[in-house]
């Protein structure tokens, strides 16, 4: 009987060190995904109750949302102008082409069983063109990246996982850092920040786009505290993620494509 335990341990060693079990994982995803969706039944019930009870307030909701839409559209107009201005300025500078981001809406269908690992399961997979390394956003900021793609679902690693680190920069002055997750949904840490670097509490960190994994310019977090570490030449900097990593149910998958007119093309 103890042989089984050794078999399990052997399996674990194989899985931890090689990629051999990946096809098995993909093969099982067909059964795993529906059950994960089934486990969401309280949410369905919630939806049904909501549908019944709120048909009266629907009109009111609609009205509010229309107003919100108007405000957002007005903001977007300004953004469009800024974006084109930015493009023109970049053109003057002969800078590289701007990237345009396309999004796909996804819903959370599962979370990791182990509270120490911050991975989630989302309901978009290969059939929607999701690819490994694709960035995930919620309405507030960057959430993480896709690490495994299955047929109709995919697994994503959140930026707060202790295995995750991402390149960021301060939006105010462009200083670059690496933001590491530490297993806490409300906290990231910046590594190797020297005391002479110009950072202050309240600075907004955005993705820098280095490493070509995350699109540049999406908010990642706010700096909440900067403390010296005893006996270390570096500072201990804590960052609060802007995204609601453990709350968001709907998220966006971002993919990049190069914007229509390439800048600096007449130069070449």
């Amino acid at each position: 009987m103890l042989i089984l335990i050794f078999v399990a341990f052997f399996l674990l060693l194989i899985d931890a060190t090689t990629q051999w079990l990946k096809p098995v994982r993909i093969w099982f995803s067909g059964t795993v995904t529906p059950v994960h969706s089934l486990a969401l039944f309280p949410n369905w019930a919630d939806g049904v109750i909501d549908d019944i009870s709120s048909s009266l307030s629907l009109k009111e909701k609609n009205k509010l949302q229309n107003i919100e839409l108007l405000i957002l559209k007005a903001r977007l107009q300004k953004m469009a102008e800024l974006s084109s201005e930015n493009l023109r300025l970049r053109n003057l500078l002969h800078a590289s082409e701007l990237l345009q981001n396309n999004v796909l809406v996804a819903e959370l269908i599962g979370q990791s069983l182990d509270p120490l690992s911050h991975t989630i399961l989302i309901n978009r997979g290969e059939d929607y063109g999701v690819f490994k390394g694709q960035a995930i956003l919620d309405s507030e900021g960057l959430m993480g990246q896709v690490i495994e793609v299955y047929k109709s679902s995919s697994k994503a690693l959140l930026i707060s996982d202790s295995l995750h680190a991402m390149p960021v920069k301060i939006s105010r002055n462009g200083m670059r850092f690496v933001a590491e997750g530490n297993g806490n949904f409300r906290n990231l840490t910046l590594r190797y920040v020297s005391p002479s670097s110009e950072i202050i509490v309240g600075d907004l960190l955005v993705s820098s786009g280095l490493g070509k994994r995350y699109p540049a310019g999406y908010p990642v977090g706010w700096i909440t505290s900067i403390n010296p570490i005893k006996g270390s030449p570096y500072l201990n900097v804590n960052v609060k993620p802007t995204a609601q990593l453990d709350r968001s149910r709907y998220m966006l998958l971002v993919s990049q494509s190069i914007e229509k007119f390439k800048v600096g093309q007449d130069e070449k």
């Binding site: 009987m1 103890l2 089984l4 335990i5 078999v7 399990a8 341990f9 052997f10 399996l11 674990l12 899985d15 931890a16 079990l21 098995v24 994982r25 099982f28 059964t31 795993v32 059950v35 994960h36 990791s112 069983l113 182990d114 690992s117 991975t119 399961l121 495994e148 697994k155």
Partner: peptide, 19 residues
């Protein structure tokens, strides 16, 4: 399989507890 992490992890725990 449902956890989607390393295979064999819960199998070790479960079978040892049962043992």
């Amino acid at each position: 399989i449902f956890a989607g992490e390393m295979y064999g992890r819960y199998a070790i725990g479960f079978s040892f507890c049962a043992y």
